[in-house]
Design a binder for these strands. Structure first.
Length: 1100
RNA sequence: GCUCGGAUGGUGGAACUGGUAGACACGCAGGACUUAAAAUCCUGUGCCCUCAACAGGCGUGCGGGUUCGAUUCCCGCUCCGAGUACCA
């Protein structure tokens, strides 16, 4: 139906007028039935039903001002077909719709225009509703909900209160009421509490707890509550004037609006979703969701199994700032010197003398009561053995060290200068009476002051290795097996220990580096992953497995927010560490015999056996991990640990248009309002902007305080609050006493089919699962997972059309436009042209002149008398003139055509550009279907004859096909099959009532309006609840089959054979066939494959 | 980089468990009807060779493999799309 010019349009209008009386009148039919469904509440789900339930849900739409474009209904049409089909199949179907009506766009609009967001929201909803209605969806509108209505957000606030009143008990592995925590505190203090909580919780006895003031108790409890107030680093978006959750930030910009986002410390409400990390991860294995969405959630949760290891900070000689540095008198922190010492230490250890080894076995592992290290670099020397805390060096002379014996005196003096004493033993002493030597060492150690504690007190913020009494740096690693390959430690520049660890000599370097890092924006830092940068702090840690000194660096490739903000650098196994080591000339130590080419790049293999790895040498990966985890735990320097990437979710927004948080503040502490005081209504304000003092808009509300004296929380809930539980409200939307009754929840249970876009993968779908699990823990709901089956509909992209304007020598546009195929002959620039005036790439020139008046007198260079436009697939957007509005299509073709066409376009889950090129085929199909029920004069006519075999076959083919297709969500293929069925029945001139009636039922989920009309013309009622026809395979059975005969796998001909024939009889007939013999060219078949009802293959 | 999808005529796509590749629709070409156009109906339409028919050859991103038989299974690559990222 294209109008090449105005004349055609007139003729078409005339044709429509003539058709009015008889042809398929989609507009009238569709209006009639939409009205009928609304008036009769046809799709109201029953609350008490003996039928099995089926819950079909579409993702909660935000009613934007732009209304629906052609991509939005795709999922709604699919879910509607499914719902209607399930009703025919005898299910009590819940298929609701509502609006996620709090949100930023309405508020941005309010800021610009001063209009109350409630008013714009209301108007947008009206548009939305009108558009939804005209597509003929079978929603149960009696259950409509809007998150911005107080009758709804009352319950969002109520759930917030439950979260505030709960803590996560790791022993029972679920959320519990906060009173059970208080009981534990009363009974046994904090000792036996295993909870997911803040890091800074106090350790206290029951008596302490009893002695706490109420305020102190509240402060402590807040660290356990599932929603809590905490100073945290947030994503602050200055342009929007609010904080954003991690999932609302994309590449350093806000998802809505694309404004820059920065990091800022603020007091914020948070949700302790991290408590549910493991359950959220495990639950994914139980639900039927698309793999990419599950994968995204897994990545978001980011579970890593590994170990935490504490690297004690070496107190010599680098941590001497304050008192040490001057005493030592020279710069031992020189990295170059370190490099040499390190290598020597390694060589020495490998080449140990018998005496050294004997002594080492006697004094290692705290056998003397003190930690002793071997081959430890001190100053410019390597000590054989050293006890750092006691500043004592033990040397064994002779053997390997013979050549330096003459230097002993100088050496001793130098070490003394560094604050160390040296005791010496000869090889002979050690080998003849090791016990005596060991006793001497012990006595010497006992008599010396322990300087470690004194040192450590300078570093009060350091973490401590359990049972060690030494300061340390905790790292998280998934490859603890590579710990012998550690050649440096890297801290994030923001790490809290950086200041403390930086030596005087390195101070300038470090400060310069931190300044440089701060200048880089978050985005630069992420984009620039190639440049290696970092700075040396001047300090060292001690690798607990081999007591080697390891230098501490800072670098921005380590993130403060993940793990402990510190990593152990293993250049041979990790490419980033490798690059770092290469750049700063740090050693690369091979630790597995299977590692290859580690001079060229890191080899992260887990294959092979360990080398250079002391006590795990010769082990394999699994044994090494398990051995080390035990070893670390026994030594008190680490343990196996699971780490999650997922952070707690920030829950407050400094905005107006959201749910008020039902909290007031007394003496700076948050308290809930009383349950019977819900809902806490959103107050009216004069302007939708922050106050002059920078408080959120709610600060403008006058007379808005709790009990006239306490200030309410001024931030509101984020956009995802209302959508995190809405599917339960649909179960019992009008309930005034509960968010939904127990009975309704028990009956409807969960969502059987959930359709929506994959953009909600890490936001809504994760938060909803979290709230659902929480509500289940508290016994309010019954299912662990809310959405059993999820389908992501593909995006409908825009398909832009272009005209080509000829440009002159200077590149200036002329008044000439050239058709697509001829544009190569000219210099042109492409201009977007409204897709609505282009049909099958042919430009409607007259409409174009109207659309772009500056081209009213333009010249058009045509090809074959037509102006052909260029095409490109882009995002659907106003600025690209490629938005297709469903209203226009419904006007031209009707809702049934639109519904079927959107399905016909291709598989639901696949993204595709919108393109109306095929819509006429679908429209023609519906007319052809309509005509089946009418005679030549368009008068309704069916007969009551007995259906023929061919008619029944066509019918039952489609009965089966549609049920198979719908069950596997393959809607596009059933549209094709409908066309085939109607084509077949048309060819058969079928007018048979029985056949046509069944056909109407089968088609009705796809094209409900036309089917309702025909159903009533056939004299029936209540199509929506008519049983789906029963498939009878007998009608499809054939006596014969045209077997494809292939020779050597190549199809040559078809041969009709009875289906009752078995292999022997069949091959006999096939081989007797002249044509077959012709193909065989006299050769004898080697083998004959016969698959009954499928194929005959002759191998020669 | 990693993870997950995908690649079939001029176009959208079909082929469900390894068994006739290209259903259905669009587009295009030809024809009927018409003064004409639109609409409608009919016929043809993967590519190559051939006047045409018959027959044949090629053909599901590329290269191999398994199999009587591969769009489908396996191995290796190329390209496109989506998500994600110094996550230790």
């Amino acid at each position: 139906m294209h109008f090449k010019n105005r004349l055609n349009l007139l003729i078409f209008a005339n044709y429509l007028r003539k058709r009015n009386l008889m042809d398929y009148q989609f507009a009238a039919i569709e209006q009639k039935w939409q009205k009928f469904w609304a008036e009769n509440q046809t799709f109201k789900a029953e609350t008490n039903s003996n039928k099995p339930k089926y819950y079909v849900l579409d993702m909660f739409p935000y009613p934007s001002g732009a209304g629906l474009h052609v991509g939005h209904p795709l999922g709604y049409i699919a879910s509607d077909i499914f719902s209607r089909y399930k009703r025919l199949k005898g299910f009590n179907v819940l298929h609701p719709m509502g609006y996620d009506s709090f949100g930023l766009p309405a508020e941005q609009y309010a800021i610009q225009t001063g209009q109350h967001p409630a008013i714009t929201t209301e108007a947008n909803i009206a548009t939305y509703r009108r558009q939804l209605d005209q597509i003929g969806f079978s929603f149960d509108w009696s259950r409509e909900v809007r998150t911005s209505e107080s009758s709804y957000y009352k319950w969002t606030q109520w759930i917030f209160m439950q979260l505030f009143n709960s803590w996560y008990n790791l022993e029972t592995d679920k959320a519990e009421d906060i009173t059970t925590l208080i009981e534990k505190f009363n009974a046994a203090g904090s000792a036996n509490v295993k909870a997911v909580c803040d890091e800074d919780v106090k350790n206290f006895m029951p008596s302490d707890w009893a002695a706490f003031t109420d305020e102190e108790k509240q402060v402590e409890l807040l660290k356990y509550r599932l929603t809590y107030l905490k100073e945290s680093t947030v994503n602050w978006c200055p342009a929007l004037g609010t904080v954003l959750a991690n999932d609302e930030v994309k590449d350093g910009f806000s998802e809505r609006g694309g404004y820059p986002v920065e990091q800022k410390k603020m007091m914020q409400w948070s949700m302790r979703i991290s408590a549910y990390a493991e359950r959220l991860l495990q639950g994914l294995n139980t639900i039927d969701w698309p793999e990419p969405v599950k994968e995204m959630q897994r990545n978001w949760i980011g579970k890593s199994v590994g170990a935490s290891v504490i690297f004690p900070i070496s107190l010599t000689p680098t941590l001497s700032a304050g008192e040490g540095a001057d005493n030592y008198g020279y710069e031992t922190a020189d990295p170059l010197l370190w490099e040499i010492l390190k290598t020597n230490a390694r060589v020495n250890r490998v080449n140990q003398t018998e005496a050294e080894d004997t002594l080492w076995q006697k004094i290692r592992n705290n056998q003397t009561g003190h930690k002793i290290r071997r081959q430890h670099p001190i100053g410019s020397y390597i000590a054989d053995f050293i006890c750092l805390n006691k500043r004592l060096i033990i040397e064994v002379d002779g053997g390997y060290h013979l050549e330096i014996q003459e230097n002993d005196k100088i050496r001793t003096e130098a070490l003394n200068q560094l604050g160390f004493d040296v005791i010496r033993f000869s090889n002979y002493e050690v080998l003849s009476d090791i016990n005596l030597v060991s006793e001497k060492i012990k006595t010497e150690l006992e008599g010396r002051p322990d300087i470690a504690t004194k040192k450590v007190s300078n570093l009060s913020s350091l973490s401590f290795g359990e049972g060690r009494g030494e300061a340390g740096i905790e790292v998280f690693t998934t490859r603890v097996d590579t710990i012998f390959g550690v050649s440096f430690i890297v801290l994030a520049p923001e790490h809290e220990l950086v200041q403390a660890l930086t030596t005087e000599a390195q101070k300038e370097d470090i400060e310069k580096y931190i300044a440089q890092t701060k200048k880089k924006s978050e985005l630069d830092r992420m984009a620039d992953t190639k440049t290696v940068s970092g700075a040396f702090t001047g300090s060292y840690v001690i690798n607990p497995v081999n007591n080697e000194l390891v230098p501490i660096w800072i670098a921005d490739y380590v993130l403060a927010g993940y793990g402990t903000g510190a990593v152990m650098g293993v250049p041979s196994g990790d490419q980033r560490d490798w690059l770092f080591a290469k750049h700063f000339n740090l050693p690369i130590i091979q630790i597995l015999d299977a590692q290859k080419d580690i001079e060229v790049e890191a080899d992260p293999t887990k294959e092979g056996r360990y080398i250079n790895s002391d006590f795990i040498n010769n082990l394999g990966y699994k044994e090494a991990i398990s051995y080390l985890n035990h070893w670390l735990e026994r030594e008190g320097v680490g343990k196996a640990k699971v780490n999650y990437r997922m952070r707690d979710a920030i829950f407050g927004r400094q905005r107006y248009w959201g749910e008020p948080i039902p909290v007031y503040f007394k003496d700076g502490l948050p308290y809930l309002i009383k349950e019977e005081e819900l809902p806490l209504l959103l107050p009216e304000i004069d302007k939708y902007l922050p106050t002059e003092s920078g408080e959120p808009p709610l600060g403008r509300a006058t007379d808005w305080s709790y009990e006239k004296q306490y200030e309410y929380e001024l931030s509101t809930m984020p956009g995802w609050a209302g959508s995190s539980w809405y599917w339960y409200r649909y179960m019992d939307a009008q309930n005034e006493n509960k968010f939904a009754s127990k009975d309704a929840i028990a009956y409807w249970k969960d969502v059987d089919l959930y359709i929506g876009g994959s953009e909600h993968a890490t936001g809504h779908l994760l938060y909803s699962r979290f709230w659902n699990k929480f509500l289940k823990d508290l016994g309010y709901v019954n299912e662990e997972e809310p959405f059993k089956k999820l389908i992501n509909q593909g995006m409908i992209q825009g398909r832009s059309n272009f005209v080509y304007r000829v440009v002159d020598e200077e590149g200036k546009g002329t008044n000439t436009l050239v058709s697509y195929g001829l544009r190569k002959d000219y210099k042109t620039s492409a201009l977007h042209v409204d897709v609505n005036i282009v049909e099958n790439e042919i430009l409607n020139v007259n409409k174009f002149k109207e659309f772009r008046p500056e081209f009213a007198n333009a010249e058009f260079i045509l090809e074959n008398g037509k102006y052909i436009c260029g095409v490109e697939v882009e995002k659907m957007s106003k600025s690209k003139f490629n938005v297709v509005n469903p209203d226009d299509l419904i006007k031209s073709y009707g809702a049934d055509t639109l519904r079927m066409y959107e399905m016909f376009l291709g598989p639901l889950e696949q993204s595709k550009p919108w393109n109306t090129n095929g819509i006429e085929g679908v429209f023609k199909f519906l007319r052809k279907f309509w005509r089946l029920f009418h005679n030549e004069e368009w008068v309704f006519h069916v007969d009551d004859s007995i259906p023929t075999k061919a008619e029944l076959k066509a019918l039952h083919k489609i009965i089966k096909k549609v049920q198979d297709d719908v069950e596997r969500f393959s809607f596009n293929t059933s549209v094709s099959s409908f066309m085939i069925a109607v084509n077949e029945l048309t060819d058969l001139k079928c007018k048979n009532r029985q056949v046509l009636e069944d056909l109407v039922v089968v088609l009705s989920p796809y094209a409900p309006h036309i089917c309702e009309e025909l159903w009533s013309l056939l004299g029936n009622t209540d199509l929506s609840n008519t049983p789906y026809p029963t498939f009878n395979p007998a009608y499809l059975q054939e006596a014969e089959f045209a077997y494809p005969i292939s020779i050597n796998g190549k199809m040559r001909m078809n041969l009709n054979l009875s289906l009752s024939l078995e292999q022997d009889q069949a091959t006999e007939i096939v081989l007797a066939n002249d044509q077959v013999q012709g193909y065989l060219e006299g050769k004898t078949p080697k083998k004959i494959i016969f698959v009954k009802g499928k194929i005959v293959n002759i191998v020669v």
